[in-house]
Amino acid sequence: MIYRTLFGAPGRRFGASLKELEEMQQRMDRLFNGFRDRSAGRVGVGAGVFPAINISEDTGAYYVSAELPGVTSADLEINVTANQLTLAGERKISKEAADARYHRREREAGRFSRALALPGDIDADNVKAGLADGVLTITIPKAEKAKPRQITVQ
């Protein structure tokens, strides 16, 4: 009996513990990556699609912001469906005088388009967007049914 518990099917036990170890290692990796990202205060470029966005939420709405320097509201198109937001547009860089000699060109012009799915249902009719100082802020109210409801205990 004792023999069987200690040495019975040693191969299987060994295999199981290896798997457990692997799982633990993965969990540790995830944990440490999480810590590293948080301590640096960043999540990285994320999806790798222009523009980079930040999203925050409170009980009533989601807030999406993006840095779009040099983009005017006329060059920007925002569409919303049930729970998806599409952001598309073009960044134009004004043409300079013909005799201008460039020393540095780091700013880029071009088209962009990004779609993002929001975690809950939204009130698509009341989405508001503002563009100020090159920063786009979109306020997306949550749908009534997606809002948290406080239940009073009788």
């Binding site: 966005i53 930040n54 925050s56 939420e57 912001s65 100082d133 802020t137």
Partner: peptide, 14 residues
């Protein structure tokens, strides 16, 4: 103050 209100749930830039 330009940062959006509420709790940050996803971030790609600082």
């Amino acid at each position: 103050s330009l940062a959006t209100p509420g709790e940050k749930i996803y971030g790609e830039y600082e």
